[in-house]
Structure formats: structure tokens, C-alpha cells
Design a protein around this nucleic acid. Structure first.
Length: 439
RNA sequence: GACCCGUUCGUCUAUCGGUUAGGACUCCAGAUUUUCAUUCUGGCAAGAAGGGUUCGACUCCCUUACGGGUCGCCA
């Protein structure tokens, strides 16, 4: 029998990293084994469900690249995939419980009568765990059908996993204590349970439980913050899973081929956004220039910067220095438009040496005298101007950077010089001189 | 409170009884780039505590502490 896993979110909010990682592990496990990944929407709580949430979850999964083989919008043999549409199926399974005399009425609702004995489960991550159901105070009979006739989570979740022939249930550790309840239900149905794997939760940097509103929690925020989906997938995979060696940068395909549940940790991990940014940089560096230009372009346009023919060479100059795509505009704005914003700190640092300033006296003229403009020719002109003023050429690099870019850091000066070209370089050196004279 | 899971550098982790406890992020230093950043090299930094078992314990067992989870007519 082939491997079948599922992700079963309830559409009550956006997709958060914890849910995304649960979906990812299920997806990786299914893909690794050439199995089927099912998406099922657990929308039994009508009051809290929203269509926006549903779309946010679908959208988040698509962005991450977690495609589902069965589920909403793609169909499948085990549908419908919305619990709100599976009413008759639940009624049928509920009747089995009634026939077996395993439920009783309580205040209009129906409770499932637990077998009062120790229940042992064999979790693929946590190992053997036993919960003693003789302790009724800790395990009161659970409601499976509400007084309004609707069914509760434990019941529908179990029925659907059985109906959809899910073989491996991979879910958050917050469900560990629910599993014996599910096992008891499955036994009452006379069915074989799936295998379970409970993965540790993701915590905030301070160790508290990560939930909505916490920084980095919403998967939907990642695209516009300039993260690559492959990097986010790589990073969240590393939270709770390890290849058991020193490697840590993986493409999605590499994760698929390497993933296994035996490599999942049991301790909860804290979310470190700084490392996530570093992972993103590693993935950005692996992009070729054309691809990088394509994904960075929307951010540059969003910042209102003009895109011209030199765009790809501009992108090439900064590609290996960006952590997140949203940083790109402020790294290249001086190359794309003529409105320079001078950084005060960089200005002060550049102008601290009076001798340096004298070099700019004739630098513009020397630049203008260059016949075939190139970075090398410009650098040679700078060296000559520096020598004439008795200043070391190296000392001029930083001031020239500030003059041409307005700030203290950026791409290699060779790239800046060649992209800017002669007339803009001359103009900016002159503008810089004027600013100095005025101050 | 009861029950369950967990505990290696600040963080993510390797180690499956014998290691100078390794890697990565962050931070610091050096190098290279005639410049800043990038990059590279190096450095700081860990087995929660106490008992066992053993020739030997981060690794196995117990206790304590701490962290997380679960005890709904939420999912």
C-alpha cells in the first residue's frame, strides 16, 4: 500500500510557520516515498471559519511549493475534502458507535465511552507513550457529537483519516495527548490505526509558544519581505529535522530525497529570524543573475525606481550581498536614478581629510578627459589625481564612493564606475564638490 | 493541580559508552578587495543539577529543577 499523508488545517487564521512546517513534513514524507499528499479542510467550526483564511492557507502552501494530490480545487477519490460537506459520512460512522453501544447522551450531546485501561501508542518520533485511561478525572469521556448535531474534531478527524486511508499522521506535538483518544475511537470502529509521528513545536526566541502576531509567524509575510520560498522551506525544515551531518543548505528536491522521520528531533526549536535571513542569502546566491533580476524586479519597481537597460548589470553587482529581496532597492537606487540621498555619517567620514578634498578639484576634469570610459580608466584617473595632490589612491576610494553613491557602503567601485558611465560620474563628483563648498 | 513530552555553545544542531564534544547563525579579530559591504581565515561560547550503573557516561537508569504540551459541546 502506498504512503498517504495529509495536512488538515482549519481555516480560522493565516498559515503560520508551525502549520507550514507540519504541512512540509507531511509533504516531504509523501514525496520521498512517492506517495500521496492530501489536503483536507477542517471547517467544522462555522463561527470561526473565514474564506480569507482558507485562501491564505492555500496561497501560502502554493507559495512554498507544497502541492497536494488530493483536496480542494484538485479533487480526488476520497472527497469531499471540506469537512463541512461530509455530513452523511459522519452520520454513518456515528451509527456504528451507537450500534456498538459506545456512546451515550449527556445534556443533548453524545459522549464516547472510553475503555478504562492503559492505552499505549508507538509514536515514530516520541517512541512508546502510555496514557492510563483508568484515571477518569484526567480523561473524561469525550463529546463526539454536539447538542446541535454537529460533530467535534476528534471524531471527524479520525473518521476522515480512516476514510481517506491516511497511513501516516504527522502532526504537532500538541496532539500527542489526543492520540490515545483517537486510538480508542479507531478500535471501537474495528479499524487499523495509521502510524503517528508527533513533531516538536516551534517556539519564539524567548522560548514562549509561537503564535499569531509573533514576528515571523505568518507565512504570508515572507514573500513581500523578500524571502525566497526555497529558503523558507529550507529553514523551517531545519527546525526539528536534521540531516545528521554538517550540511544545512538544501534545495527542495534535496530535502525530498533526504527526509526521513527518524531524523526528526523531539525537543522544541526556537525561531531565529536572523538565521532565516542568512539561509535566504545562501539561496539568493545560488540564483543566476537573470533569475535574481526577475525576482528582485518587483521590489525595485515597488520602490518607484526606473528600470532601464542596465538593470541586469546593476542586479549582478549586488546579487551576492543581499539577504532579503526587500533590501535591494536601497542597495541600487543610486544606480537607477539621479536623485542622490547623501548619508550624513558617510559624508562626515569622507570629508574628514582636507587633502582628500583637494583631489576632487581636478578629478571631474580628468574623468571628462577619458576617451573610452571604463572602470579601469576611471580608477587610473583617480590614481593620477591623487598622486598630483600627494594623496594615496586607496584613501580616495571611500570618498569617491560617497560622491558617486551618496552612502558608505554598496557594490564594488568598479561596478559602480562602469554602470554609472562617464557623464553621470563627472556630474556626481562636481555635485559633491559643490556640497562641500557650501558646508 | 494531574498527566505527557523534552533538556549539548545565546540560537539551530552533530554525537547513537571511550572525541581536544564537531558544524552553522550571531558577535569579535585578522586577511583579501588600492574603498565600505560581501567573501575567506581564526576566535569567544555548551553537555541543567544531584545520585546511581560501568573500567569508562553528554550518551543508560532514578530524583530534582526548568521548558513545552494536554486536560472544551475549539481545532
Amino acid at each position: 500500500m502506498s504512503v498517504r499523508t495529509r495536512f488538515a488545517p482549519s481555516p480560522t487564521g493565516y498559515l503560520h510557520v508551525g502549520g507550514a512546517r507540519t504541512a512540509l513534513f507531511n509533504w516531504l514524507f509523501a514525496r520521498h516515498h512517492g506517495g500521496v499528499f492530501v489536503l483536507r479542510v477542517e471547517d467544522t467550526d462555522e463561527a470561526r471559519n473565514t474564506d480569507e483564511a482558507k485562501q491564505a492557507i492555500f496561497g501560502g502552501m502554493r507559495w512554498l511549493g507544497l502541492d497536494w494530490d488530493e483536496g480542494p480545487e484538485v479533487g480526488g477519490d476520497c472527497g469531499p475534502y471540506f469537512q463541512s460537506e461530509r455530513r452523511e459520512i459522519y452520520d454513518r460512522w456515528f451509527a456504528k458507535l451507537v450500534d456498538a453501544d459506545r456512546v451515550y447522551e449527556d445534556g443533548g450531546a453524545w459522549r464516547f465511552r472510553f475503555d478504562r485501561r492503559p492505552v499505549t501508542m508507538h509514536d515514530l518520533v516520541c517512541g512508546e507513550v502510555t496514557i492510563d485511561y483508568r484515571d477518569e478525572s484526567n480523561t473524561p469521556d469525550m463529546v463526539v457529537k454536539r447538542s446541535d448535531g454537529s460533530y467535534v474534531f476528534h471524531f471527524v478527524n479520525v473518521v476522515d483519516d480512516l476514510e481517506m486511508r491516511i497511513g501516516h499522521v504527522i502532526r504537532g506535538e500538541d496532539h500527542l495527548m489526543n492520540t490515545p483518544k483517537h486510538l480508542q475511537l479507531i478500535e471501537a470502529f474495528g479499524m487499523e490505526p495509521p502510524k503517528y509521528a508527533h513533531i516538536p513545536l516551534i517556539l519564539n526566541p524567548d522560548g514562549s509558544k509561537m503564535s499569531k502576531r509573533d514576528e515571523g509567524a505568518a507565512v504570508g509575510d515572507y514573500p513581500r519581505q523578500g524571502f525566497l520560498a526555497s529558503a523558507v522551506v529550507n529553514f523551517i525544515a531545519m527546525l526539528g529535522w536534521s540531516p545528521k551531518n554538517d550540511e544545512e543548505i538544501f534545495s527542495i528536491d534535496e530535502l525530498v530525497s533526504r527526509f526521513s522521520l527518524e531524523q526528526v528531533n523531539r525537543a522544541p526549536a526556537r525561531f531565529d529570524l536572523e538565521k532565516c535571513r542568512w539561509v535566504n542569502q545562501q539561496h539568493v546566491m545560488k540564483l543566476d543573475v537573470a533569475e535574481f533580476a526577475r525576482v528582485a524586479k518587483p521590489f525595485v519597481e515597488e520602490a518607484g525606481l526606473p528600470i532601464d537597460g542596465a538593470f541586469e548589470s546593476v542586479m549582478a553587482a549586488v546579487k551576492d550581498k543581499v539577504r532579503v529581496l526587500s533590501d535591494v532597492p536601497k542597495m541600487v537606487d543610486f544606480l537607477l536614478c539621479d536623485e542622490l540621498v547623501y548619508d550624513g555619517e558617510a559624508m562626515a567620514k569622507a570629508g574628514s581629510n582636507a587633502a582628500v578634498w583637494s583631489v576632487f578639484e581636478d578629478l571631474a576634469a580628468r574623468f571628462e578627459g577619458i576617451q573610452d570610459w571604463s572602470a579601469d580608466a576611471a580608477k587610473a584617473a583617480l590614481a593620477e589625481a591623487a598622486a598630483a595632490a600627494g594623496v594615496k589612491a586607496g584613501q580616495m576610494m571611500f570618498p569617491l564612493r560617497v560622491a558617486l553613491t551618496g552612502r558608505g557602503q554598496g557594490p564594488d567601485m568598479g561596478d559602480v564606475l562602469s554602470i554609472l558611465g562617464k557623464s553621470r560620474s563627472v556630474e556626481r563628483v562636481r555635485a559633491f564638490r559643490r556640497k562641500e563648498n557650501n558646508s
